[in-house]
């Protein structure tokens, strides 16, 4: 589904990613782990078109998408959330989701201004779709919250809303950047379930960056560990978590031996 071939990203002298190979199969949930500065978010930024890779290929369904505009990448079927949560804070909760249907809807400035039947129908459909997506999170984002500005949401709800917004673009592949960051244990468990349901109910292929090892263990079919832009381990959770290079990357040289 998503394939990276010898992908490199360099900022000046700093090699953020070097010759990274990575494949995510259809319907798979793959987690990317690694210490800070390992190049995880850079990876997402390259895949979603925010950065153009220095060299290498990004393939979606076998077609190259490297260097494409972020909007085009999204239209081809890759949606994402952001590590630092980038919602449209001064828009209402439901508008955040409705806005993300932009690429899949057609009504233009004239049909909206004239209130043509087609535009009205579409607007109604968009609203229903947004409500449906928000209901995906149970009672967390329903009812009175729809009309509230996004900035009034709690941190956990902002992360949920960001996922709902990403879903509204009808993606095939979903990239989640630290979906459980800043959540309490209960919320973390909830988000783990949500990620599982996303695959089951929405038929998505998911790539996750996550620091919380419980989440990683709970969701991943496969785990990839990065350090300094290089893949140091790949496989199921247990094999990667105990891999000596991974332990070393997190805890420093010699840790694996002492253990």
């Amino acid at each position: 589904m998503l394939e990276l071939k010898k992908l490199s990203m360099q900022f000046g002298a700093l090699k953020s990613l070097s010759e990274l190979d990575l494949t995510v199969n259809k319907g798979e949930i793959v987690s990317v782990i690694g210490p800070n500065g390992a190049g995880k978010t850079t990876l997402f930024n390259v895949v979603t078109g925010i950065y153009t890779p220095t060299s290498g290929e990004v393939l979606l369904d076998g077609k190259s998408i490297a260097g494409k505009d972020p909007a085009d990448v999204n239209r081809l079927g890759i949606a994402r959330t952001f590590q630092n949560v980038r919602l449209f804070l001064n828009m209402s909760v439901i508008e955040n989701v409705m806005a993300a249907t932009y690429a899949n809807t057609k009504s233009n400035i004239f049909s909206s201004a004239l209130g043509l039947p087609g535009a009205r129908r579409e607007e109604k459909a968009v609203r229903e779709r947004a409500e449906e997506l928000l209901n995906f999170f149970g009672s967390r984002l329903t009812g009175y919250r729809w009309e509230q500005p996004a900035y009034s949401l709690s941190y956990a709800n902002r992360r949920r809303l960001e996922i709902a917004r990403a879903l509204a673009t009808n993606p095939k592949v979903l990239l989640l950047d630290e979906p459980a960051a800043g959540m309490n244990p209960k919320e973390t468990q909830e988000i783990t379930d949500v990620i599982g349901r996303l695959r089951a109910e929405k038929d998505l292929t998911i790539l996750v960056i996550e620091h919380d090892m419980h989440v990683v263990e709970g969701i991943s079919d496969r785990v990839i560990a990065l350090d300094h832009g290089v893949k140091i381990a790949e496989g199921n959770f247990d094999s990667v978590a105990t891999h000596p290079d991974v332990v070393e990357a997190y805890l420093g040289k010699g840790s694996a031996d002492r253990k």
């Binding site: 909007a71 949606a79 828009m91 806005a99 400035i109």
Partner: peptide
């Protein structure tokens, strides 16, 4: 226009152009 598709998209541009782009706008 303000309360429908194009108006919403304009406001996303004002709020956060990068996130807006990443949502296919």
């Amino acid at each position: 226009v303000n309360r429908t598709r194009v108006g919403r998209a304009w406001r996303t541009v004002r709020e956060d152009p990068l996130a807006s782009q990443s949502m296919g706008i």
